[in-house]
Simulated assay, not measured.
Amino acid sequence: MTQTIKVEPRSHPYTVKIIFQGLRHLETHISRVWSKRQIVIITDEHVGPLYAQQACAHLSAAGYPTKVLTIPAGEQSKSWSQLEKVVNQLAAWHLSRTDGIIALGGGVVGDLAGFAASIYLRGIAVIQVPTSLLAQVDSSVGGKTAIDLPTGKNLVGTFYQPDFVLIDPAVLQTLPQRLLAEGYGEILKCAIMAGSDFWNLTAHIQSCTALLQAAPQLISASVSFKAAVVTADETETQQRQLLNLGHTVGHAVEIAAAGRLFHGEAVAIGLYQLTRLFEKKQLTPNGTSTLLAQRLQALGLPLADPALGTPAFYQALQHDKKLKQQQLTLIYLKKIGHPAFYELPLAEAMTWFKHELPQRSH
Rank of each mutant, 00 (worst) to 15 (best):
P358C: 11
T28E: 12
L277D: 08
A266S: 09
H12C: 03
F115Y: 09
D111W: 06
T174L: 08
E254T: 12
T145V: 02
T174A: 14
V229E: 02
L218N: 12
P130T: 02
I167M: 03
Q282W: 10
T66G: 01
T2H: 04
L218M: 14
A135N: 02
G287N: 08
Y314E: 04
Q82C: 13
L243S: 10
L175G: 11
K6Y: 07
I187M: 12
N244I: 07
L243K: 05
L242I: 01
T151L: 13
S140R: 04
L166K: 08
S77P: 07
G48W: 08
P150L: 08
Q294I: 13
I71P: 02
A103K: 10
K153H: 13
T66K: 02
G48Q: 08
I331T: 09
A135M: 10
P339R: 03
A227E: 03
G110N: 05
V87C: 04
V86N: 06
H247F: 06
G157F: 05
Q173M: 13
V253E: 07
Q217V: 00
V129C: 09
G195L: 06
E45F: 03
A304T: 15
G142K: 11
L188Y: 10
G74H: 01
W34Y: 13
T131D: 00
A221T: 03
A52S: 15
Q325Y: 08
M193G: 12
A312F: 14
D168I: 07
L357E: 08
Y120Q: 00
D111S: 11
G114K: 10
G300N: 10
Y64Q: 07
V137R: 03
P13I: 11
S31M: 08
T248A: 07
R122V: 06
G185L: 05
K67Q: 15
L242N: 04
L175C: 05
R122E: 00
F115T: 03
V229L: 09
L271R: 09
E8G: 00
L317C: 10
Y272S: 04
A170I: 01
T237W: 06
Q136L: 04
Q294K: 14
S139K: 12
L292W: 14
A146Y: 04
I269W: 00
A73T: 15
A347Q: 11
G157D: 07
D197M: 04
S81G: 02
A57T: 14
K36R: 15
Q318M: 12
Q54H: 12
E27A: 15
K17G: 03
V7M: 10
P72W: 14
A92L: 12
N88T: 02
L133S: 02
H94M: 10
L104W: 06
L180F: 13
I39V: 14
A113V: 06
S361K: 14
N244G: 08
R260V: 12
A170C: 07
G152T: 07
T70Q: 04
A203V: 05
R24T: 14
Q177E: 15
A347K: 05
I119K: 00
T288I: 15
Q282G: 01
I187T: 14
A191T: 09
A293L: 07
F164G: 01
S60G: 13
G105T: 11
S11P: 06
K78V: 12
I119F: 01
A349M: 13
L112W: 06
A92T: 11
L172Y: 09
T174S: 15
A73C: 01
G246F: 12
S220F: 00
Q315K: 14
V109F: 00
A228N: 15
L121R: 10
